[in-house]
Nucleic acid binder design. Structure first.
Lengths: 212, 212
DNA sequence: TAAAAAAAAGGGTTATTACCCCTTTTTGAA
DNA sequence: TTCAAAAAGGGGTAATAACCCTTTTTTTTA
């Protein structure tokens, strides 16, 4: 019995091409394809056709790969997700893996590597390229031994950032230029892999840096 | 013995004019004047010349009237603050009063009213114009009888706003246009008198609308 | 004391936010 | 059934935020 694969990608051409490759593999066959995460979740719920493995694009309209994977992992923990993306940045890779993906491939992956990845995910439970492994190791040193450590000034900045003050106002309070304050913001965002202040406030409250 | 007054305003002309008026009052005399809040706090700490009443501008560089009043109220609760501003908007008035101001006058106040206000603040503890009283009454109905009530959709919006999602992403999640989502934001900000999402996140966590 | 790290700040760009205005459609109650 | 909210959304704009990259000065430490 072949493993069943679902391809989720908003680019019709690409998803068909990938589907074609998969059909060519000895051990795999395509169950169906979807144009976005919502379509996948709906299809699984409606038809109960549950794939063994999902080849998931990360950037899709309606419901993106990260959110879809989270949802899927919650409702169907046995379905393996193998991420397939053009993006290679650390943040995205980590988010996808944290969401439950078993592997992360670039879209320019060779046929042979795709097959290898699919097989390893089904048999070993994961498949990681060197790039992804490095990201994992780096993130590990952030969360275990090294922990995330803020400098004095960064800590002060975080506390001010947990108010309604603009960066200009924070700069006035700290007797610095706004550019310096924005520098602290960038450093803190990088350390915590954040996109905006909303995330910082939640982090600060969670970690009792700021008590509301 | 006359009551001592300190005038804090970044406009030299205006602070001198006000100083002149105060000097003309039977019961008051000017102790000194300052160009911003920081200067006032420094002067009080350095010289220990503590005024009975401070005529405080709201919009000043370095340290504005709201923050200065908060600080002053914490360290010297006996010093009365009478706010003097060109701004007449609800948010500013409320912030100034919450910070501890005993009254709030427009800068185009007449000499006789200024004297009356100073006297009443010293003798009755407060002086409020009709405008300010209305703002107080309105804010009261928000915090006691009426309470702040959010509609269903506003609640959902608030929960999404407590993530790193942009409004565009929230709109996609809620199957609405960004304009509608921005409408919810405006409504919520108005109800809570907020300036930005940072304040909303803190409010939501404080009030257990969102648990991080 | 030379090299490295941290702190401060500037320049520039684009996206997002916050804040107005105002219109249409839907819905609910009088 | 009509009147009034509520819900959804459009247009425009200025300020702010986020994201780059670079430079100078100060502090640390190897």
């Amino acid at each position: 019995m072949k493993y069943s694969v679902v391809v989720v990608d908003d680019h019709n051409l690409l998803s068909q091409a990938i589907g074609g490759l998969v059909e060519g593999f000895e051990e795999f066959s395509v169950l169906y394809t979807c144009k976005n995460g919502q379509e996948l979740l709906d299809k699984i719920n409606d038809t109960k056709k549950i794939p063994d493995i999902v080849l998931m694009d990360v950037n899709m309209p309606i419901l993106n790969g990260i959110e879809t994977t989270q949802q899927l992992y919650k409702d169907y923990p046995d379905i393996k997700v193998l991420a397939l993306s053009i993006e290679e940045d650390e943040k995205t890779i980590l988010k996808m893996l944290r969401a439950g993906a078993k592997g992360y491939l670039m879209k320019d992956v060779k046929k042979s590597e795709l097959e290898k990845a699919l097989l390893e995910v089904m048999e070993k439970g994961f498949y990681h390229t060197n790039t992804v492994t490095k990201v994992l190791v780096d993130s590990l040193s952030d969360s275990e031994e090294n922990k995330i450590v803020f400098k004095e000034r960064e800590m002060i900045f975080i506390k001010y950032a947990c108010t309604e003050m603009t960066y200009r106002e924070i700069a006035e309070k700290m007797f610095l230029s706004t550019k310096t304050v924005e520098g602290y913001r960038d450093a803190v965002f990088e350390k915590l892999k954040l996109r905006n202040r909303t995330g910082l406030v939640i982090y600060a409250i969670k970690n009792k840096i700021f008590i509301p």
